[in-house]
Design a protein around this nucleic acid. Structure first.
Length: 838
RNA sequence: GGGGCGUUAGCUCAGUUGGUAGAGCACUACCUCGACAAGGUAGGGGUCAGUGGUUCGAGUCCACUACGCCCCACCA
């Protein structure tokens, strides 16, 4: 961090420039639901991009006089932290172990077998790592000049978040919106946790399409096509389309699975596509979501063979639902599969099927999309587990309506939200089989027989929240009753990380106890976030707000884009194309990085291009130099009377109006563009040059105009380049207070003045004089002996008003204005002084 | 398969309600002049993806096509 940045950063912090003022009313307060970054330790240039875009808006609103509530949160809750701790210390969590005590010190980078730790110790490590990461993030964000109120910082695993998360869940439970279900759920076999629809992504995977012959009870056989032959023991039915002539006669009869000799019904369903495969398919428990649907419709017992670890489970063929015409053979085949991974089992069963002659022809290779947990490495499986669900499927319509009450910027992002809501096909599974997170705050009764009674959900008293049911005892029980008949057990799971972060507006608002603060902060004004988490963070936040009290959580949602590498590929650590922000900040400075972020359109992905950073640095330098000139002139400001000065004020008026309009339209990139063009072209290239003569002579009109223009342009740039504008404002311009609490420029604060055309006339002539000098390869100060300007009477009249400035700037000795009724533009004939260069 | 977005100068992109194509970078030439060489001045460079339509007039509105990207669905 350079000296200037450091100096102003600590100045802002010491003066509390960005502090929220709880005494001011809701109507003048602008509340930001800041995205809590995942504190995974990887700082990304994309963080700089999106957080700066939010800060631009915040700074604009602050200068408009609003009371800003702009907190920072750290998303330390969840898998990313667990993974980091596991890798950093080479440890694993084993919740069955007792706490090792505070004294146990662990080394980083330990080798060998991972060491198992108690849940409490593991969480202590998570806390420590997270604290370190949060310091790194805070230092980056301060350096970027984010105008957060750091006294309002929260974490998603902190006590306050756990309280809000658990309380809100208890409300859902009371309303019947949360349910415990023992049902097939998407399951990641590596993380060994349930996964929600929003965390699933498709990836193309190579596979083989096998044609497998099933026997028929009525005699003969039928061939089905499948990519998952290992699920044959889990087959519960075959399905064909009711109109399919080939199979119509088989409907209602039983098929016999190969190897396992299990009778399965052949049923008709319009969901079966005649053209696909052989037109008849097997339903297993469970190959995919369609299997789950069919299994529900058929209402037959589950034959589940895949365990939570993704290996084939042993099952009792011949007993209960494991019906087989030849249980001994089935058990024999199953024994060979037991304990194998899915891939191993597939190879094994294909070999067995080939031996049995049940495979028709060669397997066909194909690529097809397979569902993965977005952070996972192996395909998801559907496994029957007991999970907590929040009912959302029955609320699609109202959630669409709630989404329409939010103003999305850019508007197309509303469509993204609606597409997601319309496509929902599962309720929200909120329980996760993880450790570092907010515990699900319930216990279950244990029956007299020692079995857990999941219908007997024991909830904590609200005044006891937050609770950890695996360590605390519910009211009315004694600790030694844990796990005993007639006693209780704690729910071992934690909430989906979104289950907590969907409540960020309530976490910061003091809900529900601090009613005054809550009313002052909720609903929020702005939710800034990236487009990839519309289906999670935005969706779940809208959902939770609706379920809690029917509210809409924010007025506006500003959706930022991603930073892609120069080849337009997503940056990722594994590809090694991540740009480290601290290096960029060192090289170009904070203002340049912010300039770059401001030049990107809201919602649009942008390729990483360091050239724009150079532009930003150039702007900062130019501002400083222009300010030195303007504030360096001696003399007092007077009335703005000179025509060129009045014209500049007129042009500034128009600029303020246009720039303000663009900020209000959430188009910071256009606000920047208009400001920049005006500053660079009107002010620096033309006015600063044209006004020099008068300004050096301390002409009161010129001095006034220059200072007014500079005061305005600095404030117009202040949200984008806060460091250099503050430096100039307080040092060069010697203003008393921070520019960031100065008022946003308005047309009304300017003196009278309008641009009737003399500015353009002066620039038109000056440009032609410059061109003549450039073509003659002489310096811009080279004297002009005589200038003849031909043009229409009206334009000559305007030009005449400012001709003193033009002759002085162009170093023109003598001039003549020649009226030509036929002409439309001003044409200058520049005669350079002797000796003319060769 | 459904939906969304994009295609403008070598590169990155502006082009608000339809009215003579813009900026920065890069390139060329010149200029150290009393803010600025992390600079200044001037200049070259585009049949606005294609086709058709509406209009006096289309980069801008409409339809279709091509290519690229994104989301969702399918996923036997």
């Amino acid at each position: 961090m350079n000296e200037l940045e450091e100096r102003w950063q600590s100045y802002w912090e010491e003066r509390g420039i960005y502090r929220y003022d709880p005494a001011r009313g809701r109507d003048e307060t602008f509340v930001v639901d800041t995205p809590p970054p995942t504190v995974s330790g990887v700082l990304h240039i994309g963080h700089c991009y999106s957080f700066t875009q939010t800060d631009l808006v915040v700074r604009y609103h602050r200068m408009r006089g609003e009371n800003i509530f702009y907190p920072m949160g750290w998303d330390d809750n969840g898998l990313a932290t667990e993974r980091r701790v596991q890798n950093m210390f080479n440890v694993r969590c084993d919740p069955s172990l007792p706490y090792e005590g505070e004294d146990l010190e662990l080394e980083r980078g330990a080798d060998g077998q991972p060491r198992s730790l108690s849940r409490r110790k593991f969480i202590e490590l998570c806390d420590a790592v997270v604290e370190e990461d949060e310091r790194a993030f805070k230092s980056l964000f301060e350096r970027l000049g984010l105008s957060c109120d750091w006294t309002q910082t929260y974490t998603t695993v902190g006590r306050r978040s756990r309280f809000v998360s658990q309380l809100s869940f208890l409300h859902l439970l009371e309303k019947g919106e949360a349910e415990l279900r023992d049902a097939p759920t998407m399951w990641d076999i590596d993380f060994q946790s349930a996964i929600a629809q929003a965390e699933v992504e498709d990836r193309d995977k190579e596979g083989s399409f096998y044609n497998i012959r099933f026997g028929l009870e009525s005699g003969g056989s039928v061939v089905i096509a499948t990519t998952r032959p290992e699920l044959i023991p889990a087959c519960i039915a075959l399905v064909a389309h009711p109109d399919d002539e080939r199979y119509r006669s088989l409907i209602g009869t039983n098929a016999i699975t190969p190897l396992f000799e299990a009778p399965v019904p052949i049923v008709a369903d319009e969901g079966a596509e005649m053209e696909k495969g052989t037109g008849i398919l097997m339903v297993c428990t469970f190959g995919d979501a369609a299997d789950v649907e069919w299994w529900r419709e058929l209402a037959v017992p589950v034959r589940e063979i895949i365990g939570r670890d993704g290996r084939i489970k042993p099952v009792p063929w011949g007993e209960a639902q494991w019906v087989s015409n030849d249980p001994a053979t089935a058990a024999e085949h199953h024994a060979k599969l037991s304990g194998l991974t899915i891939n191993q089992a597939q190879r094994e069963i294909v070999a067995a099927l080939e031996m049995a002659g049940a495979i028709e022809g060669e397997p066909e290779k194909l690529r097809r999309p397979v569902k993965f947990y977005e952070k996972g490495e192996r395909p998801l499986e559907f496994v029957v587990t007991r999970q907590w669900f929040v009912k959302i499927l029955d609320k699609k319509q109202v959630l669409l309506e709630q989404g329409r009450k939010v103003a999305w910027h850019p508007l197309v992002m509303q469509k993204r939200y609606e597409d997601w809501v319309e496509g929902l096909n599962q309720d929200w599974c909120v329980s996760r089989q993880r450790y570092f997170g907010v515990p699900i705050p319930v216990w279950y009764g244990v029956g007299a027989d020692g079995a857990i009674d999941y219908t007997n959900v024991i909830v904590p008293r609200k005044e006891d929240l937050p609770v950890d049911p695996s360590a605390e005892t519910p009211t009315g029980f004694r600790p030694e009753q844990r796990g005993e008949p007639g006693g209780f057990v704690g729910d071992p799971d934690v909430f989906d990380t979104w289950g907590t972060s969907s409540l960020t507006p309530l976490i910061v608002s003091g809900w529900p106890d601090d009613e005054q603060r809550h009313r002052a902060l909720y609903p929020n004004d702005l939710r800034p976030q990236a487009h990839d988490i519309i289906r999670t963070w935005a969706f779940y936040t809208i959902t939770r707000a609706y379920l809690e009290d029917g509210s809409v959580p924010w007025k506006h949602a500003a959706i930022s884009g991603f930073i892609l590498d120069p080849d337009r590929k997503k940056m990722s650590k594994s590809k090694g194309n991540v740009v480290v922000p601290t290096e960029t900040l060192d090289q170009f400075g904070s203002d340049a990085v912010r300039y770059w972020a401001a030049s990107g359109r809201l919602g649009w992905d942008s390729a990483w291009d360091p050239k724009v950073l150079k532009d930003g640095r150039r702007l900062a330098t130019k501002l400083l130099n222009a300010a030195r000139l303007v504030y360096g002139y001696e003399g007092d400001a007077g009335e703005v009377t000179y025509p060129l000065d009045r014209a500049l004020i007129g042009r500034l008026r128009a600029t303020i109006a246009r720039v303000t309009d663009r900020w209000d339209a959430w188009e910071h990139q256009n606000a920047l563009g208009i400001t920049e063009t005006w500053f660079w072209s009107d002010l620096c290239d033309n006015y600063l040059e044209l006004s020099k003569g008068r300004a050096y002579r301390s002409d009161p009109s010129a001095i006034a105009t220059l200072r007014i223009a500079m005061d305005v342009v600095l404030r117009l740039f202040a949200p984008i380049v806060p460091f250099i504008t503050e430096e100039i404002w307080q040092t060069t311009a010697a203003k008393a207070d921070s520019i960031h609490v100065a008022s946003w420029p308005t047309v009304g604060e300017l003196p009278a003045g309008e641009d009737e055309g003399c500015f353009d006339a002066a620039v038109a002539v000056l440009t032609q004089v410059r061109r003549a000098k450039s073509q003659a390869k002489v310096s811009m100060r080279f004297p002009v002996r005589h200038l003849g300007v031909t043009g229409p009477e009206s334009k000559l009249g305007l030009l005449k008003l400012v001709m003193d400035d033009v002759t002085e700037t162009g170093n023109i000795a003598d001039y003549e204005l020649i009226a030509d009724g036929a002409a439309e533009t001003l044409v200058a004939d520049t005669q350079l002084a002797e000796p003319e260069p060769a």
